[in-house]
Amino acid sequence: MAEEPLAGALGATLGADLVSAADVPMLDSAAMDGYAVSGEGPWAVVGRSLAGRRGPVVRLGHGEAVEIATGAVVPDGTTAVLPYERAAESSGTVHGGVGEGRHIRRRGETTAAGTVAARRGSPVTPALLGLAASLGRDTLPVVRPLVRVLVTGDEVVDEGMPRPGAVRDAIGPVLPGLVAWAGGVCAPAVRVPDRGRDLARELGGAGAAEVVAVCGSSSAGPADHLRGVLAGLGARVVVDGVACRPGHPQVLAVLPSGAVVAGLPGNPGAALAAALTLLVPVLSGRADRRDPAHAGRRTRLIGPTTPHPADTRLVPVRVSRDLAVELSASGSADLRAAATADALAVVPPSRAPGRLPGRVELVEVPT
């Protein structure tokens, strides 16, 4: 946990309860522009009170009023604030009608001293930053897990149009936004050649990273070294492949240092599915916050979706109210559908041809 200035805390997770150290507002104040009045009208106007400083009139007598701005401290003896739109002033006297106690923000009405304004584990949103500022805070205690990204593959290039036989890295650019959505932060990606010793060196030197995302090298091909490297480093494997398409070669392991390794398939569509089902829950758990990808939302799947006979499918869908329709994709390397999807629908396996599962769980995607 670290103490961060408000300007740098957005997207992190609140590391401790946010407790108000003082009443907000600190004194009774006007909730409307108008006149602070005492007793029944009409009222003699005896001064003016502006926000940010105590007015010249400390106490109102019965039948007296001060012109007042929203947020300004009301004088002692104020029984209500008469809004401008309900007031008529003439020759230093104001007329109008207002109920007793109306349009006054009482001391501590917004937040009383000692109140828990936000709980530990809350995502630091723009509104939470505003709340913290209103409570007089300049910093916040936050948790933001650091993710180290290793992009494997001799054929992977970082910029421009790839030459024949090469491919552009499409998952590296996805991860910073995905990780930030889950409350973490990505270190700059590191390119790793298709050699086991290079991958072992990078994983063995994970440093301060709590989580390492390895892009590629998670399958069973001749250039896929992740499982062997993890065994050589003494890692404890928690997930060794899943019955899910796309994304079945994914790996989750814990290094002796305590760092978690999320092995993502090399195909971008499969890597995105694995990141949503492995990496995002891990980061949410590390930050002790709610997993944004698995909110429990369910909807009715319609259209020509075909279940797999043995594996769960994660299919990109567009959602409208309580209906979801699959978007067409051409395989685990394709991000076109996921790029415009509202969510991934969890389609359970079925050997019944043409049978749709009805209501399905949705895996949320960041937008």
Rank of each mutant, 00 (worst) to 15 (best):
L6I: 13
A7N: 14
T13H: 01
S20F: 02
A21P: 10
A22D: 10
A31C: 12
A31G: 15
D33Y: 08
V37W: 04
P42N: 07
V45I: 12
R53V: 13
P56N: 02
L60P: 08
H62N: 14
E64N: 00
I68V: 14
A69V: 09
V73C: 08
P75Y: 05
P75I: 03
D76N: 14
A80P: 01
S90M: 13
T93I: 10
E100S: 15
R105S: 10
T110G: 13
A113M: 12
G114M: 09
T115E: 10
T115K: 10
G121Q: 06
V124E: 05
G130N: 14
L146Y: 06
V149G: 03
L150T: 05
D154G: 03
V167Y: 00
V167R: 08
R168F: 12
I171H: 13
L175A: 03
G177I: 08
L178Y: 03
D194E: 11
G196P: 07
L203H: 07
G204Y: 00
E210A: 12
S219Q: 03
A220T: 15
P222V: 09
D224H: 00
G232N: 01
G234A: 06
G234V: 04
A235H: 06
V239I: 15
P249H: 04
Q250A: 14
Q250E: 11
L255R: 09
L255E: 02
P256N: 07
L272K: 05
A273V: 14
A275E: 10
L279N: 10
V280K: 07
G285F: 02
A293K: 02
A293V: 11
A295P: 14
P304K: 09
V315Q: 04
S320I: 14
A329R: 11
S330I: 14
S332I: 06
D334V: 01
A337P: 00
V346Q: 02
P348D: 00
P349G: 00
R359F: 04
E361I: 03
V363H: 03
V365Y: 08
